[in-house]
Design a protein around this nucleic acid. Structure first.
Lengths: 221, 221
DNA sequence: TAGATTGTTAATCGATTAACAATC
DNA sequence: TAGATTGTTAATCGATTAACAATC
């Protein structure tokens, strides 16, 4: 029963995937599953699944496998989903509004409590029951409320200074949709959704075959 | 001058990041940069940058470094950004609309030409100049138009069957926002934006320290 | 008890880093 | 030419896979 003190990013990125599949299995009424079966379902090796899970402790049972609901709950707890989070959204543009409108996060304990934007055209607009406030009110809000997570959906140029203000105001996690790599002090968590990067990776994959055909042709010419 | 025939995912994921930083540098008027300097900027080792770039050929010059604009163009071409893409959006919910409304992709050659949704409440709605069509018209559209990329922003339960229809209709790339891991034939590219997974990773990171404190306490108890 | 499957250690594979000769 | 910095090969590190003893 060895506990690693820090889990590799490769493992962390797979955790939500485990959670998703286990939730589906639970919904489908599956009670137990072996690492073998789960691996076939998720396109991972049974070995990798057992290694991953054992970063956090032995949740299985020899000769039986894993109890689906139990493992789901364990991984949910590892992901911090047993907690409730106070969330604010910075930027009421397309992305900011889409996130605020999505009801699913609320159900998982991510409670959006305020929204801010610089644009006077957006200030006062009602997004899913929340009135967009002017950016000048951000600092005041942060000193009056305990905010856990900020959704950062602002243009690249202003993302870093706003992130600094958020950190100064006590925010512990930033969900960053701005196309920049933020510099944050130790202890503040960040996760990026770089939509443009993601689309570029898609177009890369669509062209990879041709790309190497060209490169080789170029070399041979 | 060795060309690998297939580039690892780790490298591919960094390509858009290079592109982003090089574009910024170009905009800032920087003409040349060494792997050392670029590495400091991007939090990578100089060695890794040279290895990454040399997956595609030698774009630098000994004693000089890399020409920013040139390298940016090269990586842009590797990412397939010199092409124009015909894009359709499936699902006119929060995410589908946010993507369609975002003008930036249009500027990079990703031209959204149609939108589809099952909901009669959304059919006929104008999103950024595009009228949402009923889902029944998808198949007909695909046979009448050459679609390169489909943005899949639909509920998990219907994502796989719709993806199958898209592939049957000639779509070569799927930008998947549904929280499922799609099964697609070889030759069809996919890239996922799993928003919920991303938020879960953030909450994991916010709690990691406490998590291991608990695990250790549990062990010692 | 026998069979199944985990938890864990050892072996392999691949990605990152270091080193250095090539060359601008 | 001397200095700088790449391209590339070798060394290291970490992640994945395989193997198997522990045990339910």
């Amino acid at each position: 029963m060895a506990f690693k003190s820090r889990v590799s990013d490769a493992v962390v990125r797979r955790l939500p995937m485990y959670y998703r599949h286990l939730r589906e299995l639970e919904k489908a009424g599956v009670v137990r599953i072996s690492s073998q079966e789960l691996g076939e379902r998720m396109n991972l090796t049974a070995s990798q699944i057992r290694q991953d899970i054992n970063c956090f402790g032995g949740f299985g049972q020899q000769g039986y496998g894993y109890h689906v609901s139990n493992l789901k709950e364990r991984i949910g707890a590892i992901l911090g989903l047993q907690h409730a989070y106070h969330v604010i959204v910075i930027g009421a543009g397309n992305i900011g509004r889409a996130i605020a409108n999505y009801a699913g996060f609320e159900r998982e304990g991510f409670h959006i409590q305020a929204m801010f934007d610089v644009s006077s055209a957006l200030v006062g607009v009602d997004v899913h029951g929340i009135l967009v406030q002017p950016m000048e009110k951000l600092e005041g809000w942060l000193s009056a409320h305990a905010v856990d997570i900020a959704v950062l959906a602002v243009p690249a140029a202003v993302a870093q200074p706003i992130a600094d203000a958020l950190v100064a105001g006590g925010v512990r996690g930033i969900w960053n949709f701005a196309p920049v790599d933020l510099t944050l002090p130790q202890g503040v968590a960040v996760n990026n959704v770089h939509l443009s990067d993601s689309l570029h990776i898609l177009s890369y994959r669509m062209n990879e075959k041709d790309l190497f055909a060209e490169l080789h042709a170029g070399r041979d010419a």
